[in-house]
């Protein structure tokens, strides 16, 4: 049986956040490069920032009491064979 602690899932989430930030920066670079820094682009960017902060804050609040050391079983031979080949 293979288990990982729950906080490993957070690494995947942080990797997603990194990609998210990179794409946002690419978008901002496009706006800057093409001289499209207008009130409309500023307003939509501000809306994006507000929504992002709200989602991240809600995520943080909802997961504040989570026990991150909890083990998750990602592979158990019994899932295939019907009984565990390796005793725990």
């Amino acid at each position: 049986m293979v288990t990982i602690p729950l906080y490993y899932i957070l690494f995947a989430y942080f990797a997603f956040l990194l990609i998210f930030v990179i794409f946002i920066l690419v978008n901002l670079a496009h706006l800057f490069h093409t001289g499209a820094l207008t009130f409309i682009s500023f307003a939509v960017t501000a809306l994006l920032v507000i929504l992002t902060v709200f989602v991240l804050f809600a995520t943080y609040t909802l997961l504040a009491d989570t026990y991150w050391q909890m083990p998750i079983t990602i592979w158990d031979p019994s899932w295939i064979g019907g009984s565990s080949l390796m005793p725990i």
Partner: peptide
Amino acid sequence: PLGVLFFSAYYLSICLFFYSYFVTFY
């Protein structure tokens, strides 16, 4: 926690796609 993280990623993805679509449009 898995559900919260999934929906968090989902909403951030929506924000990202919306912003990218806006930039392309604009």
